[in-house]
Simulated scan of single mutants.
Amino acid sequence: MHRRQILIGGTALALMPLASRFATAAETFEVTRSESEWRAMLTDKEYYVMREEGTERAFTSPLNDITAPGTFYCKGCDQALYVTETKFKSGTGWPSFYQPLPDAVATKPDPGIFGTRTEVHCDRCGSHLGHVFDDGPPPTGKRHCINGIAMVFRPEGGGDPVVG
Rank of each mutant, 00 (worst) to 15 (best):
H131I: 08
E56R: 04
R51E: 02
D78N: 13
A106G: 14
T92H: 05
F59A: 04
I113Q: 14
F153W: 06
G158N: 04
R124E: 10
P69C: 08
Q79G: 13
V163T: 12
I149S: 00
T140C: 05
S61P: 07
R143A: 00
P161T: 04
G70Q: 02
S96V: 11
F59V: 08
V83M: 13
Y98C: 08
R117S: 00
K75N: 11
D44W: 04
Y47H: 08
G112Q: 06
F29W: 03
F133R: 06
G112S: 12
D44S: 08
K75F: 03
R39W: 00
H131K: 05
T24E: 15
E53K: 14
R143P: 09
M16D: 14
P102D: 03
F97H: 07
E27N: 15
R33A: 11
R154M: 10
L42Y: 01
G112C: 07
V132W: 04
G93W: 01
G54C: 00
T60R: 01
G91T: 07
F97Y: 07
T118W: 02
D160I: 11
A14C: 14
V105E: 05
A80G: 09
P161Y: 01
G159M: 03
L129P: 07
K108C: 09
N64C: 10
F22T: 11
F114H: 15
Q5I: 13
P137S: 01
A106S: 14
D134I: 12
T84A: 03
L18N: 13
H2V: 15
Y73Q: 10
T60M: 00
G130N: 09
F22Q: 12
D160S: 11
V83P: 06
R51M: 01
P62W: 08
N147H: 06
K89H: 12
K75E: 09
A23N: 09
P155I: 11
T71S: 07
A58R: 10
